[in-house]
């Protein structure tokens, strides 16, 4: 049985004046999926998320969320979404617990039910002992967890997370991933944006890579790696020599060469074989690392190395 997609977009466009933030994308997200938007800053991820969250009107194209029209049924759709924005907008005038209970009221959830859910969710994000304190003293990771708890207060059918772990330390990120993974296992549909490859690999069943307002690739992390990169990557360093000067010398080894300022990346299905070939040609790198291809390689291949900030 095929279920109706929770998100359906065809040729979706968002313009701000002359600037085209989202330039004709097609999307379908099925119930229970963990779906990711991957892309550099300015790729159009957040603009897309805001349209999905029904807080931004598409300039053109078709968009249906939970089978409804975001322009006509925005309020009703938002009632079934959970949103964790990129920048925390927790209420500083309220306690941690009240942040959840007052938010529950915005969804029309009865008071007693709101209190019950707030207690349960604080337990889930491990903030129970902070319940009566204000928001301000919380660490970045705690605030983010509270924002996620707040996004869950209406038991959403679809949770939108815009860069959920940006700016957090590794411990906080891992704790957050673990919580999100649990939500995913419980069947919650997650849609997230990220520019962290490890995050996308950890959490997403399927993802799209966005660049310049367009979708440039789509698939599971594994599929993307298989399609756009080679099985292995060799990282070669040549002491004080510039890696770029070796591009001609190593031409023909592997599928492609990518010189970085500090090292040369050699994409090849057989890393060890490529290293032997480098030695056979008479070059002795100061260090050699053969590793599996990651989503990061795909990302850099697809979106280039130009800084877009």
């Amino acid at each position: 049985m095929t279920q109706e997609p929770l998100i359906y977009a065809r040729d979706l466009v968002k313009k701000f004046g002359d600037f085209t933030a989202v330039n004709g994308i097609d999307l379908e997200v099925a119930p229970g999926e963990a779906f990711g938007f991957l892309g550099p800053n300015g790729a159009g991820k957040s603009s897309t998320m805001r349209m999905i969250g029904c807080v931004s009107t598409p300039t053109s194209g078709e968009l249906r969320i939970l089978g409804m029209d975001p322009v006509r049924d925005g309020s009703r759709i938002r009632g079934r979404l959970g949103v964790c924005p990129q920048l925390d907008n927790l209420d500083p005038d309220l306690t941690v617990f009240e942040n959840l209970t007052t938010y529950a009221r915005y969804f029309g959830i009865p008071r007693s039910e709101g209190r019950r859910r707030a207690a349960e969710l604080l337990e889930f994000v491990q903030l129970t002992e902070k319940a009566d304190g204000k928001v301000e003293p919380l660490s970045g990771g705690m605030k983010r967890r509270l924002t996620i708890a707040r996004a869950m207060v209406n038991e959403p059918d679809l949770v939108l997370l815009d860069e959920p772990t940006t700016g957090l330390d590794p411990q906080a990120r891992h704790l957050l991933w673990e919580r999100l993974f649990r939500l995913k296992q419980a069947g919650t549909t997650l849609v997230l944006t990220t520019h962290y490859m490890d995050e996308a690999e950890q959490l997403c069943d399927r993802l799209v890579v966005m660049d310049g307002g367009k979708i440039v690739a789509e698939g599971s992390p594994r599929h993307l790696i298989d399609t756009y990169s080679t099985k292995e990557v060799v990282e070669l360093r040549f002491g004080s020599d510039t890696p770029a000067s070796y591009v001609d010398k190593l031409e023909g080894i592997g599928d492609r060469l990518d010189p970085l300022p500090d090292r040369l990346l050699l994409y090849s299905a057989d890393g060890e074989g490529a290293v032997s070939e480098v030695h056979r040609r008479g070059y002795t790198p100061s260090s050699v690392l053969v590793r599996r291809s990651t989503l990061e390689d795909v990302f850099l291949i697809l979106t280039g190395r130009t800084l877009v900030d």
Partner: peptide, 25 residues
């Protein structure tokens, strides 16, 4: 996390109850 709630879903809240939720805040 999988629990069932008795709240009616998908119906639109009335304006007075939405306004009341802001006063409540």
């Amino acid at each position: 996390m999988v629990t069932t709630y008795a709240v009616v879903r998908g119906t639109e809240l009335s304006t007075p109850s939405r306004v009341a939720s802001i006063l409540n805040r």
